[in-house]
Structures are given as C-alpha cells and as structure tokens.
Design a protein around this nucleic acid. Structure first.
Length: 667
RNA sequence: GCCACUGUAGCUCAGCAGGUAGAGCAGCUGAUUCGUAAUCAGCAGGUCGGGGGUUCAAAUCCCUCCAGUGGCUCCA
C-alpha cells in the first residue's frame, strides 16, 4: 500500500478516503504532512502515512506523548506540561510536577488506556498569537515557546479537555493509542538548562498493535541480558567494587585476555602504518597541564594532589602532552614527517558521581592513542589513512554493527569556548591562540587594544580538511555544530550498546594549537622553522568501551580469536582425564586457550556449568576419543564434529588467524 | 552535581501489617564412573551497604552518608 497515491479535490476531507482504515495516521502531499481531519486546500495527490511506517510511527508516538500529558493533567491538575516529542523508540513528556512513584506511574498508564478506549477525537484548531498567549496563560513553558516561535498564528490540538500547543500532525482520535507502555521516569531541566525549572520526564513507547508492542518489550528484556555488567560477571571478565574502587573497574583474567587481544591487534595495525609505540608516565607536574590548556578547562575533572613539599601533580587525563615531550626531545626535519607516536595510554578522569557507570563511563580507561605530527600539506592524506584503519578495525571486530560518523564543528557564536586566534580591529595584528573565558580580557600584544575579533581561518581550514577526507573515503556522516574539542574540530564514530544508547568510540581531531603552545617545530624544505600540526586519533577510543560494544553485540559469544575460553574440554569420566590433560597441553602449545573440567560430574552438568563463560567450542572426551586420540567439538549452535588432534589444531588456528566472526569448525 | 529507584550469603532472589534471617545455584564433604543445558545426600556460609534515631524490640519505620541503576548535565 505505501506509495499508492490518491487524487483529492479541493475541499475534500482526507479522512473520507480512509474511513474504514485504522492504519493511516496522516497523509503526505509531497513532503508536507496533513492531518487526516484536514480538508484539501487545493487539488492534490496524496499518499497515506501508515502507522507502521517510520513517519507514521513518529506521529503515533507524538500523539501518545500528548495522551500522557492529557492523563497526567487530569490526575494532577497542577502539573504543567512542557514538551513531549517522539524518540527513536517511543516518546517522552517533560512535565513540571511532583515526581510520581511507581504506583502513580501505573495509574497514569491506566488513565491513558482509559482515554484511548474512549476514542476521543483529536482536533486541530488555528489561533492567532494573541489568542494562543491567552489560552496558555497558566502554562509558562508553552507561553515562552509561543512568544519565541509563533509569528502570527499557529495550531493547537484538542482532545476532550486537554489542549496542547503543537504543530502536529496527530492521529485522528485516541483509539489509535491503545498499545502504549510507560517505561521509566527521569529528571531533567527545562531546555536542558541546569538553571531552569526541574521537570519530570516520563518515558514511554507506543505501537500500532499489541503484537509489536509485546515484541518490543520482549526485545528490551533480551537486550538487558546482554548488558556487559551482567555478561562481565557471568563470564568473570571484570570486577566492580563500589566500596573501594568507585568507577574503577578491575579486569579479571578472562577480561584481561580480551583486552590484550584487542591491544595486540591494534599494535599490528599501528605497525603496518608506521606508528611507533611509546610509554609515558601516568602523572605529571601540574605545570604540564597548565601549559596544555587542560588545567584551565578540566581542573575540576582531574585527579589532582599536592605532596607534603608543596609540589602539585595530576594523573594524566590525556596522553598528548607526554607524546609532545617525546616529539620535542629531538629536532625534526620535514623529511621525517609525519612523526607518528602511539601508546596504549591509561588515563584518569574524575567523572562526576552521577555520570560514572560500568565500563562505558569509568574513571580510568585506556586509549589506543596516537598523535601524528604532520606538515599542513599532508593532513588530508594522513586522515584518509586513519579513516581506512578505522573502517577495517570496525568491520573485523564488530562485523556488521552499525557505526555512525559525526563531524563535530565549532559553534561560531561562542568563540570564547575554544582556543582561537584573535585579530586586533585597531592595528590588524593576529594574536596567538587563547581561550577567552580562561584568560580574562583580551588585549592586542602590539597596540594593547581590547577591540579584538576572533579569526576562524585555522578552524575553517581544519574542518574542511576533515570534510574532504570523509568525502574521499566515501563515508556518510553528519555535521554537528558546537561539538568540537576546545582545541580543534573532530570526526567521531559512534556505536550503540545493547540498551540502544549511543557511545563515542573512535575519534580523529585536528589540533593547530597545542603544537604552538608547546613551541613545537620542524625544519621545512626552505630551511625555516615551521610549526607542525597535530592529529589526535584513537581507533578503539576507549578500549573498555570498545570491548563492551563487541561483548554486547555478540551477547558474550565473541569471535574465536577474542574468546577468553577457546576450547572447554569436558571429560566423560575420570578415566578420560589423563588424555584430557594431554589434549589441553597440545592446544596450549599452539597458543589455543583451553580449559579442562576434570571434575567428577556428569557431562550434562559440566556443559551446563561451562556455558556461562561462553566458550567458543566444547570438546567432549570419552572412550572413543581416548582410544583414537580424537576430540568431539560442539560449537555454539550445538553442531558437532569429531576431529583428529592435528586437524582440530589446524582448523582452530585457521579460524583464529583469519579472525573469523562466524564459527566454521563443525560445518 | 541534579531527580527517581535500588542495596539481604560468591550469584539469583524471598522475607518488609516491626518480634533479632530463608531458598536455589556455586563452595566444601561423602556416595554415584556417568556421552552433550543441573545424579543424590550432608555441611558450611550473612554484624540484612555504613552511621544515627524512634521502639521493650528494626532487614522491616524515620534521618543521614556511601554506592549502584535509569535519565538530565557533562564527556578533553
């Protein structure tokens, strides 16, 4: 049905075309959406927007948000709804009210269903700005919105006693909204501004039919089982100890295996692209961070301490200054460039209490960090290379998991938030880079004038080079203003976790400023000193965060090369233990991680108990295997196949070497 | 940091109209020698997140601190 068009004459009501259909949320004329309740303003061709389509589902959920506000204001007349948009998985509404308890939320949901059952028409009305202001006199959020965004007139939607200021469109009546579920309650501030009113945000979801709602809820439950915190304790990967190490996760042996595999894979990729590896201290004197600019901006988020003799130190929140020290320790010629310095550098950031969580937001994490010092002319070439490694890495480890690329740019209205060169309006002198908020009033170093304007040349050039590199690698990306680092624009790669939350992994950042604040240089072809440009890059980003994405996307069933337990050997009875030990030794000798369960239990029980560790293969050893020196392998899909020792080793090594994602041993 | 919820044995959870803790799994001991998701029996294991209060009596009610979870803010 989608795509089918209907011809409509002027004055005809759209609803008349779809009288008996409950799967049409609105109609679309080209790209313009109309409510079903509207009449055509001219002769036109329209297509129905089905509730099952992406666009239709959005409308349905937007209407469900209204229904939520409707229910809340009926139950709590003093509640003031602010705004309630649809989201990717449902909707929410921000409302000023007492935070509801679980029981109250259940009540609200019940009320919503009651209203849905009544099939109350949702009617659009047009009003002048003055009328709107009068209508929403008691709702200061809507009032503010009307004053800011309405020019002459706009629309409201009325369902029974509830009226909402809204552009729409909406479903024709509340009966479309029977399949809803409130999911959780959170707190937020009006317009996300911490200084504005505190609001309650109620999240929910809506679907066109009960089956898809049930499916969604079941999927959410399944996803929760993939949560890395759950998998991590089942598989004995990490240890969280909230008492003694808040936000400081520990790797248990199985977790350390995965971490080390990731590191050695990246070490190999680094080497292929001529990155050298260094190791730098985990702390520096505070002067280092003052010079780099981190102290001014991130002092409150750093682990700082002062010793008895008055010396102050900070744990490193980034690796770049250490790499800079290594770069500057030697003279450089344009012939050595790019100088590529890498490190699996552990950094420490004091994330605020409410912000820490699991391995995705710890206070300590390790970055597969790298800094390329390049001449301005070779920036784009270097970035293209890095992008290529990123794509290869993500494809190899995460398979077809979707990664999105963002280009984060400066907010031109807030030059004071960034390191920025300023030009004197009086004498025209270009002054060195500063962050205006950190340094107080700006004065020209030549004439002392305070009449300075930001000069965006460096920022614009860096942004363009990133754009070009992305385009030339045929990577689809979105641009975001105001998301840049304080020292330069960047490309970020995001991946979603099991609960649908998006996390930043890889990053490429161009930095014109740190090299100059540290006075870095190289000798160019003309024999003159030139300042290099620094490219900060991390392919995994945080190793722990990347590990989480891999772990959750495979539900713990990691590719063989990453699996902590590659072979779980299970003996049928004690008399097979001797061969079990031998087999383990043989596998170990070839670098295959094998564990033996020689306990005096049934095969079934030993298999059952081993599954929590998600071993890649289970090798069962009984009379037949012992007599003929064989092993019977069972893979994660319960396929079985018997091998000679030699064949088993060869096949497993092949799967490991090729870093295969799918299991092929028992095919 | 803000709002809500949560914190009982290694793990998963029960107990919460207040009467000083209970199960399954794991662990240990013994029996069972067994072919692909739990063989049987016994034993041991907790100052109920910390502190304070109300009470004759607190895991249970109140306050406070800490931590975890969800969301907001932030994320170099």
């Amino acid at each position: 049905m989608p795509g089918k068009t209907f011809a409509v004459n002027r004055g005809q009501k759209f609803a008349d075309l779809f009288k008996d259909r409950k799967d049409v949320a609105a109609v679309m004329e080209g790209k313009i959406l109309h409510d079903l309740g509207d009449a055509a303003e001219h002769n036109m061709e329209i297509t129905p927007v089905l509730t099952t389509s992406e666009e239709g589902l959005k409308i349905l959920r937007h209407s469900a948000a209204h229904l939520l506000a409707n229910a809340v204001t009926e139950l709590y007349p003093s509640a003031i709804p602010s705004s309630g948009p649809p989201t990717e998985e449902g909707f929410y509404y921000d409302i000023e009210m007492q935070p509801p308890s679980e029981n109250e939320v259940e009540n609200i949901e019940k009320k919503m269903k009651e209203i849905a059952e009544k099939s109350i028409p949702i009617v659009k009305e047009k009003h002048s700005k003055a009328e709107l202001e009068k209508m929403f006199l008691r709702n200061r959020f809507k009032l503010e919105n009307i004053r800011e965004s309405v020019e002459k007139e706009s629309t409201v939607y009325r369902q029974g006693p509830y009226v909402d200021f809204c552009r729409g469109p909406h479903v024709p009546d509340t009966s479309y909204l029977k399949n809803i579920k409130l999911l959780n309650v959170a707190s937020t501030n009006y317009k996300g501004d911490i200084n504005r009113e505190r609001l309650v945000r109620i999240y929910g979801t809506a679907f066109p039919d009960s089956k898809s709602l049930k499916q969604y809820l079941a999927m959410r439950e399944e996803a929760a089982k993939r949560d890395h915190r759950k998998l991590g304790s089942e598989m004995e990967l990490f240890v969280f100890n909230s008492e003694r190490a808040p936000g400081l996760p520990l790797y248990a042996p199985n977790g350390a295996i995965i971490r080390n595999e990731l590191i050695s894979f990246m070490r190999k990729l680094n080497d292929e692209d001529d990155w050298t590896e260094v190791s730098t201290p985990h702390l520096f004197r505070d002067v280092m961070w003052k010079q780099s600019g981190h102290y001014a901006k991130y002092k409150d988020d750093m682990f700082l301490f002062t010793l008895a003799d008055g010396d102050s130190y900070a744990l490193k929140p980034m690796n770049c200054p250490g790499h800079i020290m290594i770069y500057e320790s030697q003279p450089h010629s344009y012939r050595d460039l790019p100088v590529r310095i890498s490190e699996f550098g552990t950094v420490y950031r004091y994330e605020k209490s409410g912000e820490v969580g699991g391995l995705t937001r710890p206070r300590i994490f390790t970055v597969d960090d790298g800094h390329a010092f390049v001449a301005a002319s070779s920036i784009d070439r270097e970035i293209k290379k890095i992008l290529a490694v990123m794509e290869k890495t993500y494809k190899t480890i995460l398979g077809d998991v979707q990664a999105t690329y963002d280009l984060s740019l400066i907010d031109r209205n807030k030059p004071e938030s960034y390191l920025m060169e300023y030009r004197c309006r009086k004498c025209g002198t270009l002054n060195e880079a500063k962050r205006a908020t950190a340094t107080g009033p700006l004065t020209c170093r030549e004439c002392g004038s305070e009449d300075m304007e930001p000069d965006f040349t460096l920022w614009d050039s860096a942004s363009n080079q990133l754009r070009i590199a992305l385009d030339e690698n045929n990577i689809r990306y979105k641009e975001y203003e105001g998301e840049a680092a304080f020292y330069g624009p960047k490309i970020d790669v995001h991946v979603k976790d099991a609960l649908g939350r998006s996390w930043q992994l890889a990053t490429i950042q161009i930095d014109f400023f740190m090299p100059s604040s540290f006075g870095l240089s190289f000798m160019n072809a003309e024999g003159k000193k030139e300042t290099p440009i620094m490219i900060h890059r991390a392919v995994y980003g945080s190793i722990e965060r990347f590990l989480v994405m891999a772990l959750e996307s495979y539900g713990g069933k990691l590719p063989l090369w990453l699996s902590p337990i590659q072979a779980q050997i299970i003996t049928v009875s004690e008399k097979h233990n001797e061969y079990g030990h031998e087999l383990r030794k043989i596998l170990k000798k070839h670098g295959i991680r094998a564990t033996l369960d020689s306990s005096f239990e049934t095969v079934s029980k030993k298999i059952k108990l081993s599954l929590r560790y998600r071993p890649a293969y289970i090798l069962v050893i009984g009379d037949n295997e012992v007599q003929n020196r064989l092993a019977t392998a069972r893979d994660r899909s319960n396929r079985q196949k018997t091998f000679s020792e030699k064949e088993l080793v060869e096949k497993m090594l092949e799967e490991i070497r090729e870093r295969r994602i799918d299991q092929g041993l028992c095919l």
